[in-house]
Write a protein that binds this DNA or RNA. Structure first.
Length: 200
DNA sequence: GAGATGATTAGCT
DNA sequence: GCTAATCATCTCC
């Protein structure tokens, strides 16, 4: 069953990032369904997170999607090539988001291979945020689309990882962020082949 | 209206 | 490991 709006509107973005592991993300592009369960996420805590587009309460045409109520997609382009899928969380006015970094594909694998121009399935099919978006056919057209829509949604199928199979680690490259640098904002399933990199 | 830049990835060394 | 690719968005003039 699809996750309800309540799931996304919890205030603690890290809790949602943690809970999203093992949930199933699907897209329906022109009637073709593909997706899998999430194995790696990263939390972006709005205005206090230097890595966030909304750091310092910055509000622009692009970032305004993050300020909306939780339960919608925030898709944007980075480095001119890569489109990334974020889940907007919390309530209206709080620009929190969870970046989907990797999924374990379960449905529509042929379709994903085609989109990625790959001949056979490899662990890097959906490892890394840019790869996930490309494999699922996600584009900026889906920005601000609800996760209760027919084009993209997240399901709970009862898959739960025990605590000791989940790693919560500090993000890299944020040493300058003082006490925030120690916060475990990156979550992934230990040992899963589709995690982008075990310890980056 | 122009110039700098980045929540990355792939491919070469 | 290291570096090039590549463009929407933001910022400043």
């Amino acid at each position: 069953m699809k996750l309800s709006t309540d799931f996304y509107q919890v205030k603690e973005v890290t809790q949602i990032a943690r809970n999203l592991l093992g949930k199933y993300l699907f897209t329906n592009i022109n009637g073709e369904i593909s997706g899998g369960f999430i194995v790696e996420t990263e939390a972006y805590a709005g205005i206090i997170d230097k890595a966030s587009h909304a750091f310092g309460n910055r509000l622009t045409n692009r970032t305004k999607t993050m300020y909306e109520a939780g339960g919608i997609a925030y898709v944007y382009l980075c480095y001119g090539i890569h489109e990334m899928l974020n889940v907007v969380t919390s309530t209206e006015g709080e620009p929190h988001a969870v970046l989907i970094r990797a999924i374990h594909p379960t449905e529509g694998i042929d379709l994903m291979l085609e989109r990625r121009n790959m001949a056979s399935i490899k662990n890097n099919l959906t490892a890394g945020p840019g790869s996930v978006a490309k494999a699922l056919g996600i584009s900026r057209k889906m920005n601000s689309l609800s996760f209760l829509s027919e084009e993209i949604w997240i399901e709970d199928r009862g898959l739960v990882f025990p605590e000791d199979e989940i790693a919560a680690v500090p993000r890299v490259g944020v040493a300058y962020a003082k006490e925030d640098a120690l916060l475990p904002y990156r979550f992934y399933v230990k040992g899963n082949l589709y995690v982008s990199k075990p310890n980056r």
